[in-house]
Nucleic acid binder design. Structure first.
Lengths: 262, 262
DNA sequence: CTACATTTTGCTGTTTTTTGCTTTTTTATG
DNA sequence: CATAAAAAAGCAAAAAACAGCAAAATGTAG
């Protein structure tokens, strides 16, 4: 494609102010800009744009990066803070899950941040017998006075901080819980639950087998994604809890199945 | 003046920041990613992804592993040990215990603050297979790259933060380790090791039975004290480690026995 | 209106960063 | 120990940033 640019046809001389305003707008709209794009769009040299962006950077109105600029909120993170990804969504899911809990029942809580959130939010008065294979979940459950915690032994995975492997699977084969709350790496209406890791899949299979009912906790962002190893089909799951309303568009694919949406 | 500008079909350029943000999202969403997957998804070379992940790793925003990256997740657990009683003594004991460790051996580490200190001080390079029934010890062992950790399952005690009970004892009956490092509530040259709690005694008995050699870690303050339930006689112990010199007066009673003092 | 200082802008190298490629080394795994 | 995959190291091309300079625009004062 060839663009003909007649420079003198543009009589509107832009003030520096206006230019910078435009750049800021662009950044706030798209979270990022390329210097070259701006230069072309405003028909000024790349150097001018660079100088503008540099100024805006020193004024802390955006952050200049190699090749462009990004909005300040874009890369904001606090390393010290307890930064769980999508924490609000996970809390919403955990709260829905809580409504399923019947006192005196025997449940199993899987690893992962969503399940950990469920463990955190368990009310102190509720009486439960709770199995888990996640170290952080177990730590959390110890703080609940009325929960009897049983840890499923086995080889510990440094990444997932859960026990897995043959011994764990064998131990799981000897129990049967009323409900298990599990997470998954990926879920798809057609392909079911999948994982990145083969060992995790084996463990999750054993968990599902050890459960009368299985409840999947899953933020909507994971819906319609898949990976290498398959845990189970979707119909092995009894209830799917996301942070969305049950009739949300994104859940349409999952609605037809014999699965309870929450 | 007329300017002819030949505009190329840009392959939608991505800023480095955007790429890294995408990688972080993926990691936080699924807990782990493959470098190759990311490279394909973002349509950049594997080297670029590797460099990005390396940067993010040094910034402590994820952990780089062979072939991919994993989320830091909840691994930033550091149980405060500000208020550990007699910490210096316990560190001294743990350091002596370290000298007993042979690479590639299979050991068991009990619960209690002294044993936890031993776990903390394990050097990162040493290769060990390590059993434990203590939640805090297990958490600590997860941070050691070359230690294979196996958690002995069972019912969790809220006080001691270890598994115990029939299931734990049964699980212990099926293993045999080279060394076990145990603590005790009370120890006396004549009465042996005793505890306040009956269940703990049963568990410790099972631990000793599962060990070729048993090493008792014990601060001198506990010497010559006793309580209600008996774990074992002193001669069931192979090595006694205190913070004292082996020829200290307080250890006189223990010297006569067929027990190694350290 | 002119003379002159100041700011802005675009242009010219030069330097730095980024990125993909190749080769070598290391690591994982059977 | 052999094989394959991944990481590391080094290199070169391309893009971007930078520094300096000069033309143009703007402002100011006489």
């Amino acid at each position: 494609m060839i663009i003909f640019t007649a420079k003198f046809i543009l009589p509107l001389e832009m003030l520096k102010e206006e230019r910078q305003r435009t750049i800021l707008n662009e950044v706030e709209l798209h979270n990022r800009v390329l210097l070259t794009d701006i230069a072309e769009k405003l028909d000024v040299s790349i150097d001018t744009v660079r100088r503008d962006v540099k100024e805006l950077d020193t004024e802390n109105r955006l952050r200049k990066v190699h090749g462009g600029a990004v909005s300040l909120g874009f890369s904001n993170y606090s390393p010290a803070r307890n930064n769980v990804y999508a924490l609000d969504e996970k809390i919403a899911i955990a709260e829905k899950a809580l409504s399923l809990l019947k006192p005196e029942s025997v449940i199993l809580i899987d690893g992962g941040t969503t399940c950990l959130e469920l463990a955190r939010l368990l009310p102190p008065h509720i009486k439960l017998t709770c199995f888990t294979l996640s170290l952080p979940v177990a730590m959390e459950l110890l703080t609940k006075p009325n929960i009897d915690t049983i840890f499923i032994g086995g080889q510990l995975s440094k990444d997932a901080q859960i026990t897995m492997g043959a011994n764990t699977i064998h131990n799981l084969s000897e129990i049967k819980v009323d409900y298990s709350f599990i997470g998954t790496g990926y879920v798809d209406a057609a392909f079911g639950l999948t994982e990145f890791d083969w060992d995790i899949v084996q463990t999750k299979k054993a968990v599902i087998k050890a459960s009368k009912k299985t409840i999947l906790l899953c933020i909507s962002e994971k819906l319609n994604s898949q990976h290498r190893f398959k845990t189970c089909d979707l119909n092995a799951i009894d209830t799917l809890i996301t942070e969305l309303e049950a009739n949300h568009t994104l859940l349409a694919n999952f609605k037809s199945q014999e699965i309870q949406l929450l």
